[in-house]
Amino acid sequence: MELREAAIELQEENLALREELAKLRAEMKRKQELVFRNGVYYLPNGDHEDGPFCPKCHDADGKQIRLHEFTHYLAGEQWICKNCNSDYVRTNV
């Protein structure tokens, strides 16, 4: 009976590790697909691009944090990261 329980535990652990590996591979692939242009990251997605994403958050922590449009009364149109509060000059893409 103990051997059967140990085998079941190993099967469950194996399944959990396979799921984690698949998740990490998908994340790594997504990061490799990022394109750096005009000072920010974009993710190609078929016929369009997702983004822009914050380069500071990506480069420091590996996070894909979407930038938000922001208009500053002196600096004009910008993107701002609500995670790290960095701002970037908005360019037409």
Score class of each variant (00 low, 15 high):
M1I: 04
M1P: 01
M1S: 07
E2N: 14
L3T: 12
R4P: 01
E5R: 15
A7G: 02
A7M: 15
A7D: 14
A7I: 15
I8H: 13
I8M: 14
E9V: 07
L10I: 08
Q11C: 07
Q11H: 09
E12Q: 14
E12Y: 09
N14F: 14
L15M: 05
L17Y: 08
R18N: 11
R18V: 04
R18L: 13
E19Y: 06
E19L: 10
E19Q: 07
E19N: 06
E19T: 04
E20F: 05
E20W: 11
E20M: 12
E20Q: 15
L21H: 13
A22E: 10
K23F: 06
L24C: 02
L24E: 13
R25A: 04
A26P: 01
E27A: 11
M28F: 13
K29N: 09
K29R: 15
R30V: 07
E33Y: 03
N38C: 08
N38K: 14
G39Q: 11
V40C: 07
V40F: 08
Y41Q: 04
Y41M: 05
L43G: 01
L43Q: 03
P44V: 12
P44Q: 10
P44R: 13
P44H: 14
N45G: 00
N45W: 13
G46V: 06
D47R: 09
D47G: 00
H48M: 08
H48F: 14
H48A: 03
H48L: 07
H48Y: 13
E49Q: 05
E49T: 02
D50W: 11
G51V: 12
G51S: 10
P52H: 07
P52Q: 05
P52W: 06
F53I: 06
F53E: 06
C54H: 07
C54N: 04
P55I: 12
P55E: 08
K56M: 02
K56S: 04
D59P: 01
A60G: 00
D61E: 11
D61H: 14
D61R: 11
D61N: 09
G62R: 10
G62N: 07
K63Y: 14
K63M: 09
K63W: 13
K63G: 00
Q64D: 05
I65P: 00
H68E: 10
H68L: 09
H68K: 11
H68M: 09
E69M: 05
F70N: 11
F70P: 01
F70R: 12
T71C: 03
T71I: 09
T71R: 12
H72I: 03
H72S: 05
Y73M: 09
Y73H: 10
L74I: 09
L74A: 07
A75Q: 06
E77C: 00
Q78V: 01
Q78F: 02
Q78I: 01
W79P: 02
I80C: 02
I80Q: 08
C81I: 06
K82S: 01
N83Q: 06
N85Q: 04
N85T: 05
S86Q: 10
S86A: 11
D87I: 05
Y88E: 02
Y88I: 02
V89T: 08
V89F: 07
T91P: 02
T91R: 15
N92V: 10
N92K: 13
V93R: 12
V93Q: 08
